[in-house]
Nucleic acid binder design. Sequence first.
DNA 1: CGTTCACTTGACTTGGCTCAATTCAAGTGG
DNA 2: CCACTTGAATTGAGCCAAGTCAAGTGAACG
Lengths: 243, 243
Amino acid sequence: MKQPNAPRAQSPDTEPTNCRLPKSGETSVTQQPSHREEEPVGQRHRVGQHGHIFREGDCADRIYQVVDGAVMLYKLLPDGRRQVVELLSAGDVFGLTPLPIFDCSAETLVASNVIAYDRASVENSPDLLRRLSAHVHAQLCALHEHAVLLGRKSALERVATFVMHCVPGRGGFECAGPRAGGDSAIVRLGMTRQEIADYLGLTLETVSRAFSELRRRGIIAIDKQEEVRVHDVCRMCQLTGAH
Amino acid sequence: MKQPNAPRAQSPDTEPTNCRLPKSGETSVTQQPSHREEEPVGQRHRVGQHGHIFREGDCADRIYQVVDGAVMLYKLLPDGRRQVVELLSAGDVFGLTPLPIFDCSAETLVASNVIAYDRASVENSPDLLRRLSAHVHAQLCALHEHAVLLGRKSALERVATFVMHCVPGRGGFECAGPRAGGDSAIVRLGMTRQEIADYLGLTLETVSRAFSELRRRGIIAIDKQEEVRVHDVCRMCQLTGAH
DNA sequence: CGTTCACTTGACTTGGCTCAATTCAAGTGG
DNA sequence: CCACTTGAATTGAGCCAAGTCAAGTGAACG
């Protein structure tokens, strides 16, 4: 047998154009204030929910940065299996590749603003390159972390880790630790079970079962399907496998 | 149950010093020719087989680049589960992190030469930063690819993918395709089954079984345990799931 | 020639996948 | 306001790929 959800991954609306966003001077172009004279300007674009910014294989002549919103990068195998390889938020950079084509597809999770830079000009602007690098290094570490999740964690640990990532300021390098007296948080997931599953390397059923298990244990409550109330953040953190 | 090989991952020789390599001017320091006047010089170090360059949590005041040899980056979970997050060869960059400490450990697979740059000076040298960036972008794409492997591929597909990565110039962006008349190759793995397993998110037994299965199918022959003869590269490539 | 260390193989167990209903939430229209 | 549709999430039953545990094999070395 092949493996997980081969026939289940939803096939996105296919319109194989080559560059989704309008080129310079077509629509919604906002000049960014340049830090120096030679600083390349980025074009600011608004992309609606579930809009594709580019697809795997498209000509990679631009580099993007998230201004606000949320973007996911994913790759597909020929038989339809999908893996979400990165979840991006404000500041994160995407579209980087050593090849002339993108290695993955980029789709917004919610309506978002992104800045598009000309690839060649980024490589010639030390200042911009340096500013982007800081974010890229953070993303590298996030990818390392995610490899551990995909390679070594159980389903429950994966879901617990995912939920913890949605709790701001906890579980990271400088976690404040358990706050005394009601260490709870309300978390908006902003993704369907299928999207979460494709990010965590699971099936949507397994993700659902993990949420149910967490609820059964009294660690979370599911308010509105997309909204999770974490009763005890610290206890949840224990379940991630990282502590 | 927790999950895979919790008690099996070998615990490396533990000597919790903070910076493994000698600082400037201690041993084996070779000045690199500087491209410009202000170009920061790197210190060249020779590291023996299975030598640690740094460990997760060490003070991250340097950035490294592989000159020759092979380096693996890995992370450990508190219970001992290990995931190899990157396999690096000549040109690859490591030690990048937004935090003041390394997010993973770096260990050589074979005796290697690496260049160590002062972190602060790299961030101030546009020229060096640009040169490193090209490699970093390639590594980002490799991490995306690896996330697909870890999240969505079967054991046999993972091992087939791994072996294909060891065949130079095949299976990539511009694969020449099946060569007429005896499309075979000899591949040196350079890793133990345990290391391969920790890279592929499997157990060493499963890796062993996958190799045996490939041999049973007549696709490979195992000459000297570390050396694999691939009889039909193209047929192997089919098994990776990517084609 | 025995010890060691890495690898292989077999028997058994199990976590997560597959398939198949149900349930739930949010429209839509009569 | 209530039936009906639709899409997402949940739950259950059964199965299989990969993990665990336990021998067994084989090459390397003193």
